[in-house]
C-alpha cells in the first residue's frame, strides 16, 4: 500500500513537471513582453504551439538518418527522467535514490550529446555551427556544474538530492561563503544551460547567437514539439533545482500530511513564478554577449565553483 502511494507521488511529480513546464515558458515570455510594454502572447500559448506542432506532418530533410528521428525522443526521455528525480513539492520520492545529483547532471549531458549530434546529421552549416558552439559552452558549463555539486555535496555530506534538500532546511547549514559562491555559479550555469540571454537567445536563430536554435533548425512537427518541450522541462528543472537547494522551505517530507503537501505545492508554484519573473527581469535588463565572451562568463562560474569546493576542503565551516 505504501509502495503504491509512493509510486503515485512519483507519477504525480512526473505529470506535474510535464504539465507545468510549458506554462513556465509562457509565463517568462509574458513577463518579458510586459516589461517591454508589449502585450505578449497568452500564457497558454506554449501549450497551443505544442499541440499544433504535434498534429503537423514532419518534414524531414532528404539526408536525415534514423538517428535524427530517434533523437527527439531520446532527448525528451532523458530530460523528463532527470526532472522527475528533482524534489519539487515533496522530497523523498520513491525513485530518488536511483540517480543522485551527479547522475541527473550527466543525464542532461546525455540529452545534450544527442542533440548536438542531431545538429550535424543533416549536414548543413547552420546545424554545425549550433552544435560546435553548444559543445564549447557545455565543455565549460558541465565542469562548473560539477564543482557546484561538489560544494553542495560536501556541505550536505551526500549527493542525493533528497538528503541535500533535507539538510538545507535544517539549522546546521547557516550562512556559508561557499554556498553563496555556489549559488552565483549555479545561476550562471543555469542561464547558459538553458540558452538564455546573455549566452544565447531562445527567441531566435537568426541573430549571431546561433547556438541552441540553430542546432535544432531542421526539426519540424512532432519532433520539434518534443525538443521544445524538453527545453521547457530543462528550464523547469534548473529553477526547481535552485528552489530545492537554496530555498528549500515548504518542501513536504516523505511522511508529511496532506496539508503539508498542499502547502508544498503552493510554495513550489510560488518559487517557479518567482524564478521565472527574475529570469525575465534579468534577460530584459542585460544585452546579449558575443560568443567568445561566453568562455570568460562560464570560466568565472567554474572558478567560483572551484573556489567554493576549495574552501570546503580547507575548512568544513566555510
Amino acid at each position: 500500500m505504501a509502495l503504491i502511494r509512493e509510486l503515485a507521488f512519483q507519477g504525480a511529480q512526473m505529470l506535474v513537471v510535464l504539465l507545468l513546464a510549458p506554462l513556465l515558458t509562457g509565463f517568462v515570455r509574458k513577463v518579458k513582453a510586459r516589461l517591454l510594454r508589449r502585450q505578449g502572447p497568452p500564457l497558454l500559448q506554449p501549450y497551443l504551439d505544442l499541440i499544433r506542432l504535434t498534429r503537423k506532418d514532419v518534414v524531414l530533410a532528404n539526408n536525415a538518418s534514423w538517428l535524427f528521428r530517434a533523437i527527439p525522443y531520446i532527448v525528451f526521455a532523458g530530460t523528463w527522467v532527470a526532472v522527475s528525480l528533482v524534489p519539487t513539492f515533496r522530497s523523498g520520492l520513491v525513485f530518488s535514490w536511483s540517480a543522485d545529483l551527479i547522475a541527473i547532471i550527466a543525464l542532461l549531458g546525455s540529452a545534450r550529446f544527442f542533440l548536438a549530434l542531431a545538429g550535424l546529421d543533416v549536414g548543413t552549416s547552420f546545424g554545425g555551427i549550433g552544435s560546435s558552439r553548444e559543445v564549447m559552452i557545455a565543455s565549460l558549463a558541465e565542469p562548473a556544474m560539477l564543482m557546484i555539486v561538489f560544494t553542495l555535496a560536501l556541505v550536505a555530506g551526500s549527493t542525493q538530492l533528497s538528503t541535500m534538500a533535507a539538510f538545507m532546511v535544517s539549522p546546521e547549514v547557516g550562512l556559508r561563503v561557499s554556498l553563496g559562491l555556489a549559488l552565483i555559479a549555479l545561476l550562471m550555469v543555469a542561464i547558459a544551460e538553458n540558452a538564455r540571454i546573455p549566452i544565447d537567445n531562445p527567441a531566435t536563430h537568426l541573430e549571431l547567437t546561433m547556438v541552441h536554435e540553430a542546432m535544432v533548425l531542421e526539426y519540424s512537427g512532432r519532433h520539434l514539439a518534443l525538443i521544445e518541450l524538453s527545453a521547457a522541462l530543462k528550464l523547469l528543472l534548473y529553477i526547481s533545482l535552485v528552489g530545492c537547494l537554496f530555498t528549500p522551505w515548504g518542501i513536504a517530507g516523505p511522511d508529511a500530511s496532506v496539508q503539508a503537501i498542499a502547502a508544498g505545492a503552493v510554495l513550489y508554484l510560488a518559487k517557479l513564478a518567482a524564478g521565472g519573473f527574475l529570469l525575465a527581469l534579468f534577460e530584459t535588463a542585460i544585452a546579449k554577449m558575443r560568443v567568445f565572451r561566453v568562455p570568460a562568463f562560464l570560466g568565472a562560474a567554474l572558478m567560483l565553483g572551484l573556489l567554493a569546493t576549495l574552501l570546503l576542503f580547507v575548512s568544513r565551516s566555510l
Binding site: T54, R55, A61, N62, G123, H205, S220, G221, L226
Partner: peptide
Amino acid sequence: IHRLASDKLRRAPAWDC
C-alpha cells in the same frame, strides 16, 4: 504522439534557412 497526434512524415530538401 504517433497514436494521438500525427505519424505522417514527408521527405524534402534540407531547410537550412
